[in-house]
Simulated assay, not measured.
Amino acid sequence: MGYKTILVHLDEAPHAGARVLMAAELALQHGAHVIGVALTGVSRFLYQNEMVDEEDPNLALHLDMLRERARTALAAFAPQMRALGVHSFEERIMDDEPGAGLALAARHADLAIVGQALPEQRTSGPGSFPAEVLTESGCPVLVVPHTARPRGSISVSTAGIASPGAPAPGRHVLLAWNASKESARAAREALPLLARAEQVTLAIIDADLHPAAFGDTPGSQALAWLARHGITATVALAQSPRQGLLKRPGDVGETLLMLAGERGCDLVVLGAYGHSRFRETLLGGVTRTVLETMTVPVLMAH
């Protein structure tokens, strides 16, 4: 089992090159087809509702400018793919908003790679598109931190060539586990990466608060399930900071990221909570915290 179709979002962000290299290396490992997508930012619903008159010279000029920006974002994609040894790929320009367009395209992919929103973009608008892709696509999403560097985020030789034998981020994976259906979905979607990892840590936060879910030995059933897939993992139990007189649990997202840092993990796998933005329901607090403060790639499934 592996990722056979990988979608990667291309834009003019400084860390876009890290996404391309990650997509290339995963493609080499899994024999995958890579689809590079750039979006104009013009919602497809405007066209469907005939709200756009492309005969308007001012509007046509604006659309041409937006499409030229998308073409610029795509310009280096094909040369990079060829240089890295990836021969099965295609590029697309979509007239749509980033979140809606990528979510639509990702419904025909095994994995979508997007960039973490920059701090100034974290709003309910276009900057929140990683969360929208996650909730609307039905596809696991690998989010690359905006601090990633094109050469530092994956295994690339001095000649700029990604090796199909070397693991992408995922040498040491932190698998967040709370025995929920969301964490189970994320673990299943991450199996191709977990199988290649040198080390897998099953992170369980605040197990004492959920005795019915974990039983006497937290994580034992998950370890047995992973072992049947040939994956050896170890359990790391941690407790979030307890707050107030009632000692309520603190920020689980921060605790997960701290644990990942302490253990030297280079990938976090997380089941995401939340619903469609059209229901105006925000993603769960753990998901928001991780998306905003992550410094390593995070694979999320919803």
Rank of each mutant, 00 (worst) to 15 (best):
L10P: 07
E54M: 13
L39V: 11
E12L: 15
A16W: 00
L26Y: 00
T5M: 04
L21V: 14
M22Y: 07
L59W: 12
G36I: 03
M22L: 15
T5I: 11
R19W: 01
D64R: 09
M65F: 14
D53F: 07
L21F: 09
V52E: 00
E50Q: 15
A18D: 09
N49M: 13
I35D: 12
E54S: 06
P14S: 12
A27F: 03
H62M: 15
H9W: 04
H33I: 00
L66G: 01
H15R: 13
I6H: 03
L21H: 10
A32C: 06
I35E: 14
F45T: 14
A32N: 06
R19T: 01
P14W: 08
H15I: 05
N49A: 15
I35C: 13
H33A: 05
F45E: 14
A23D: 02
H33Y: 11
H9E: 14
H33R: 15
L28K: 15
A18C: 07
A13E: 15
L66N: 01
A32Q: 02
G31Y: 07
S43V: 00
T5A: 12
A27Q: 03
A27R: 03
L61G: 14
E54G: 04
V37T: 08
T40C: 06
H9Y: 06
L7F: 08
E55M: 09
D11G: 13
D53A: 03
A38D: 03
V37Y: 07
A60G: 09
V37G: 05
L66W: 00
G41K: 05
E25N: 13
V8R: 08
I6V: 05
H9K: 08
Y47V: 01
D56Q: 03
A38R: 04
A32R: 03
L63C: 05
L7I: 11
E54W: 01
D11S: 13
V42Y: 11
R19L: 02
H9N: 14
V42R: 10
F45W: 13
L46I: 00
L66M: 13
I6D: 01
E55W: 02
V37A: 10
L21W: 06
L39K: 05
A16K: 00
Y47T: 02
L7C: 04
M65S: 14
Q48I: 05
T40R: 03
L7Y: 08
M51D: 10
E12G: 13
D56K: 01
R67F: 11
